[in-house]
Design a protein around this nucleic acid. Sequence first.
RNA 1: GCUGAAGUGGUGGAAUUGGUAGACACGUUGGACUUAAAAUCCAAUGUCCAUUAGGACGUACGGGUUCAAGUCCCGUCUUCAGUACCA
Length: 1007
Amino acid sequence: MNYDFNKIEQKWQKYWSENQTFKAVNNSDKPKYYVLDMFPYPSGAGLHVGHPLGYIASDIYARYKRHQGFNVLHPQGYDSFGLPAEQYAIQTGQHPAVTTENNIKTYRRQLDQIGFSFDWSREVRTSDSSYYKWTQWIFIQLFNSWFNIATNKAEDISVLETLFSVEGNNKVNAVCDANIELFSAEEWKSYTSKQQQKILLKYRLTYLAETEVNWCPALGTVLANDEIVNGVSERGGHPVLRKKMTQWSMRISAYAERLLQGLETIDWTDSLKESQRNWIGKSVGASVSFKILAEGENFEKGIDIFTTRPDTIFGVSFMTLAPEHELVSQITTAAQKTEVEAYVLATAKRSERDRMADVKTISGAFTGAYVEHPFTKEPVPVWIGDYVLAGYGTGAVMSVPCGDQRDYAFAKHFNIPIINIFEGADISEEAFSDKDKTIIANSDFLNGMNYKKATKRAIFELEQIGHGEGKTNYRLRDAVFSRQRYWGEPFPVYYVNGMPQMIDGAYLPIKLPEVEKYLPTETGEPPLGNATVWAWDTETNTVVANSKINNTTIHPLELNTMPGWAGSSFYFNRYMDPDNQNEIASKGALDYWQDVDLYIGGSEHATGHLLYARFWQKFLFDKGVVPVDEFAKKLINQGMILGTSAFAYEVSSYYMVNGEKHIVPLSKPIFVSKAVYLKSSVSKRKDIYDAKTFEHTEIDFQIIKLIESNVKEGFLNEPEFNLNPIHVKVEYVNASDELDIDGLKQDAEFGDDYKEAIFLGEKGQIIISDNDVYKVSREVEKMSKSKYNVVNPDHIVSDYGADSLRLYEMFLGPLEQYKPWNTAGITGVHGFLKKLWKLYVDDNGLKVTNAAPTQDHLKTLHKTIKKVQEDIENFSFNTSVSTFMIACNELTSQKCTSKDVLEPLLVLISPYAPHIAEELWSKLGHKESISTVDFPKFDGSHLVERSKNYPISFNGKMRFTMELPMDMSKDAIEKAVMAHEKTQEQLAGRTPKKIIVVPGKIVNIVG
RNA sequence: GCUGAAGUGGUGGAAUUGGUAGACACGUUGGACUUAAAAUCCAAUGUCCAUUAGGACGUACGGGUUCAAGUCCCGUCUUCAGUACCA
């Protein structure tokens, strides 16, 4: 009986599905365990071998926990709203829902054949209206909430309204828009409804605001900061501009401190936590107000700045504003007007990208205005400079050139005096910014103090004179929540007199309307502007035709849709009770499952999904919807699986005339093998122009000859050549890097021109039939279609089976690490499975017996139990695969047939290779699935050794080993070792200075 | 620049608290079986020297601590990832 993996795997996948083996129940006496994968966006390309890595790891863990007696929730779904389906719709007219459905089918088929233990009865799709009903519901809750700093949580907006009507907004301590006017209770009551709504909007956790956004004209949409990489869109690499638009925003900044503090309570990787800390960007310091000294004009307010170094306030020799700062035009003097305006214009013209790229150039302009130093009362000149960013802090800084390198460089460049306020610091070459070594001097009441003391004192003094206060600043900006896209969640929002109104939750979901075109409208409105049935009837509470809009009972609906991260910010809660019509999930389900115990996914979501999801979770916690304020206790980032690209070297021929290159067209393409390339002078030169400086090698002349006999048209000059590496499909390359030339030539994608191509093999011969081999060179790169290094798991599963794929993905290396895929290596784990099969089954059928296990058998088994259990708990899956191999090799050579050993071994292996485990388990006579059988208990008594093979070292170098009893005393060991003839040989008559004996470990003889 | 991770054979990678470096696998070489191939099995495989016995050198580089260092300490270099005029 052979190991027929295809048959076995299909059989068990069918069994699991029919018997709902992995269906989780919402109430159980067992303890709960929630294992979650980041759900995939179902792209048209399907899965490649890199995608399942994390799913395999989480599946092993979920299966392990079932063996441990846990009630395991291990769901899967699809993040199915998104740009690619919409782009495809724009190009083909195909409805994104149709494309998405097809892609999901492919994903499901591919996932199913790998044998995951997902509970598919709980599948969610973010693009289903039954799901996005709850995305819309959460949006409404955010709209109806404000953040009370006093209680440090979100509260209902009605609380705020009551406060306003009782005491105005003077005492309210809320996170809100800047520049809010103060009003009294009487004033509040006198406002019109519209005025009140406008004010409340400044407090709500989701709000409409005119914001400067990242507008991508090519995609016709706004992008979030984390959707922009190096100044261009992450998707497609299109340019991005700054543009002002009215957009929905999420007041995530309200949660900055809690998002930061929460990191302390969760077991996520340090690098990921560090990314989030950087993103939140907390800095502690002070805000200082400088009085404007203007001739004639009277400025009520001063210029506010934020600084982390209030201790250096006596070192201020100028102030710098961002060119975009609102006061620039007001304070600039007539004399400086031309210069300042020119500078402001020049900066505005430069894109964000230019400004970022060009950090070295110092530029700026003097406004002619002065502010007054709060303590010395000296005038301080006000400059503008593009090194100050409008978007951070207040867009203004107090410049302390002696303590900040940028201020220093600016001061040097414009000849502004530099005051030294540090004791013993040399500032002749650069600023002194070492906080810890700071002793303040030349600074009135701060003299002699260190950084900490001086900071505290400076803030105290500023507060005394009403010129500032201690302040904490965060880099985290509010998140823009509107997208000008079709394929996303519609807002449950309509507009009355331009003011947004929420649709009552009872009428959700508001379904995405049909449109003719998925592009923005001609007037520049988002795609939903194309919908003809997209108005809200407040009497029937239904969506009706736009033509009925009367602005009394029927109003226009919001045309934007929500961003990609909306649907993924709470899905982990929805899995707990996915079919609930009345709530995100029932209280019972939420109380039972609580949170995710283990979350596995890519690190690319560090500052996107993982931050927003934490934000929504905290908000839902504040509203009493969910029982915990962090959604995932532990998170692991799986590393990426890279492709091993293969290259063939194509000959490109040319000749030089007067330093100019002329291409020589060839009648047939010529490729040379890796060895030929290495023997050629081409591999040693840097560019084509130094060809002459290298002697032609023997192989070079051979290639030139070949070129000459394959030239399309005659030419006179001597041909020179280059060897260009060309990607070839990895499926035509075997484990020894040999290229299947016939296969490649017949490949449709390779092109007709290449059917006649000449291949020069390793020995430098033209390859005819099998007289020589052609080797490619290899390089590790990201998997991508264009590099022909993508490996489809379908092929692996059909050639080697799902169990081999699962084992091999784990065997490649540590889960978190980036590592290259090389299909050739899979024969190792596949061979192991065959060998394992043979341990149980031979030509006559099952060979397992009831024979009592020997001491050796038990030792192997228990050593394996111990190691595998430790490995799974440490997520070190690669080493447990090795452990299985060792166990299998040992038991094979021990000729073990004992059921008492082979049965528990199957349970150990079943999380990794569930199909073969189920098959052998049933062959052993079991009627039930192996998936919930108890994990074998480790018994250390089988591992107790009676003797130890001691390594005997001389001066730290191991020379020989000696078998000695474990219970031998130190002295006895020393005696035994000294008596050994090899010891005397090593010592050659010398007397050892010292003998180190570590019982059970090592003996080291010094001297 | 800052933050985080990492650097071990031809390759992927092992190596609990410092205690026999290179487990396991790929690849390579040789052999068995076969008409042949595949599959399977056996042996060798860090580098160098040596016929053997054996020896020298080896975990990015330079130092140090220790009886003993891939592991601990100091310094340097390189790679990858994130982030960046953040005041």
